[in-house]
Every structure is written in structure tokens, then in C-alpha cells.
């Protein structure tokens, strides 16, 4: 049964939702607008929002100065690679937690999540040393592993919640039908959990794409992804707001587009399947 809400209440709710949405989106919108201004117009006070001379010169400048496609490629490889690695580890982990839980399973899940409360900088030094030792500084594989590890608790938790919704009897039926553990996971569990796995994949790609602490600290030139591309424009030569905005827009555009087309998956993913 749908709840009946008075039309006036509904109008107010809608207005509120749009306001909050606009508030959250505003900085991004401002960045995108600024990227089309001249540097002079970008620092004008009070700021102009629409009535300025639109220009593409910032994009030209950025494309001339930096190799955008290399950064983009690094971002894609690092975000994609860490996600694939993570999911390969998270599926069996979540399977065992959901279907053969022990007394400590809940504790382990909580403990895993609690590592996310640790400030990343707290382990910068040991990780940096490990990276030197294993020659992984400024390598894509090194970043993939670190990003995979920092997101692993979240994706194990997400998959666990999805797997919990799959009736255990179906997996038992597969076992009775002669499926080995591997076949059970490949033919039954994974296809049934596809919507959940897709949400998890998407969220992980976004988290990895936006991750700025480790990507900035562990890369120099070769493996630097788009976060480093943006950072290079908040530069020692002084602040060039319009060019910085153009770089930011170029960095977030791919993920924004991906997010736009997968809104539904994302919402159900972020609410842990509570919204269907």
C-alpha cells in the first residue's frame, strides 16, 4: 500500500529535495561553468554565472600542456584493475560469511569495516616503505593493490548483504545436483547476485576513481591518474582557476557520465539493497 501524502506536503518535500540536490551539485556546476570562462572572468567578484563570454581556450591550454589521455588511461586501468581484483577476493569472502558463518563472522565484518575509520595517513609511512622495498612506487599495479585493499571492506560488506538475501536452499540444491563449490559459485550464486555485484562494481570504480590520497602520494609521472592531473593545475605558478576547472571537469566527466547512466544500480547499491 502506498502511503497517502497530502499534495501540499508532497510539493514541499519535492522542493526540499531539489534544493538539497542543487546545493550538493552547485560546486560541480560552478566548476563546469568556470571552465568555460576566461581567467579574468573566473576571478571576477561578484562572480558571473551565465552572462560571460563562453570560451574553450582553457581546454585547449590544458590539452596542450598535459597528456590528458595518459592520465585517463591510468585512471581507467587503476580503478578497473583494483575493482576486478577486489571482486575476485570479495566474492568468496562474502560467500563464506553469508553461507557458512561462524560465531565470529559478525565481529570480523565489523572489524574489517573499522579499518576504514583509521586515517589513511597513519599508514602512509609503512606503505611507502613497502612500496620502495617491492619497487612498486609509481606503478599501476602497486596502486591497484592499495586501492583494492582500502575498498575491500566495503565491497565484502556490500556483497555479504546481497548474498544474505539468496536462499541457502538454492545453493544446497546445486550441491545435491552435483555442483562443486566452484561450480556453485560460478553457475548459481554469481548469476543470482548479478544486480548486487553490478552495484558493488560501480561503487568501487567510483571510489577508486576519486581516491586522491594514495594516488597522489604513491605516484610521480608514470602511473599518475586523473587526480594527479587535477592537482598539477593547483600549481606553483599561481592559481589559474579557469584552467584548474577545465582540468577538473575533464577528470570527473567520465565518472559523472558513468554515474548518470547507472543511477538506479547505484542507489540500490548505496542503500545496501534497501531500495528496490
Amino acid at each position: 500500500m502506498a502511503r497517502s501524502i497530502a499534495p501540499r506536503r508532497k510539493a514541499i518535500n519535492t522542493l526540499l529535495a531539489w534544493s538539497v540536490g542543487f546545493l550538493i551539485f552547485f560546486p560541480i556546476l560552478w566548476t563546469i561553468l568556470t571552465s568555460f570562462k576566461t581567467e579574468a572572468a573566473a576571478i571576477a567578484n561578484p562572480p558571473v554565472f551565465i552572462g560571460f563570454d563562453w570560451t574553450l581556450e582553457n581546454y585547449q591550454a590544458v590539452m596542450e600542456r598535459s597528456n590528458y589521455s595518459r592520465f585517463l588511461w591510468n585512471s581507467i586501468v587503476i580503478a578497473g584493475g583494483s575493482t576486478v581484483l577486489g571482486i575476485l577476493i570479495a566474492i568468496p569472502a562474502a560467500w563464506s560469511m553469508a553461507f557458512v558463518p561462524s560465531k565470529r563472522t559478525k565481529d570480523i565484518l565489523l572489524w574489517m569495516l573499522s579499518t576504514k575509520m583509521l586515517p589513511a595517513v597513519g599508514v602512509l609511512y609503512p606503505i611507502y616503505l613497502l612500496f620502495i622495498k617491492f619497487g612498486m612506487l609509481d606503478t599501476k599495479i602497486g596502486l591497484m593493490i592499495v586501492l583494492m585493499l582500502i575498498n575491500l571492506p566495503i565491497i565484502v560488506w556490500m556483497l555479504y548483504t546481497y548474498f544474505k538475501e539468496i536462499p541457502g536452499e538454492i545453493l544446497e540444491a546445486a550441491r545435491m545436483d552435483g555442483a562443486t563449490l566452484r561450480e556453485e559459485v560460478i553457475y548459481i550464486l554469481t548469476p543470482m547476485a548479478i544486480p548486487g555485484i553490478a552495484s558493488t562494481l560501480l561503487l568501487n570504480v567510483i571510489l577508486a576513481w576519486n581516491e586522491a590520497f594514495w594516488t597522489l602520494n604513491l605516484t610521480a609521472a608514470k602511473a599518475a591518474p586523473l587526480t594527479a592531473f587535477i592537482a598539477s593545475y593547483s600549481s606553483p605558478e599561481g592559481l589559474f582557476y579557469a584552467k584548474l576547472s577545465a582540468a577538473s571537469t575533464m577528470a570527473i566527466a567520465p565518472i559523472l557520465i558513468l554515474g548518470w547512466f547507472s543511477q538506479k544500480q547505484l542507489v540500490s547499491g548505496l542503500t545496501f539493497g534497501a531500495v528496490k
Binding site: I170, A173, M176, G178, M192
Partner: peptide
């Protein structure tokens, strides 16, 4: 012997069909 190797077939109360 694991269930897969016992050569028995089971019909569950919930049917436990593969929905996909």
C-alpha cells in the same frame, strides 16, 4: 562423502529452483 557425490536427488519444500 559430499552431497554432490552421494548420487541422491532432493526435492525441497521451497522447490529451490534456479530463478535465473
Amino acid at each position: 562423502v559430499p552431497p554432490a557425490k552421494r548420487g541422491l536427488a532432493m526435492v525441497f519444500q521451497s522447490y529451490a529452483l534456479y530463478p535465473h
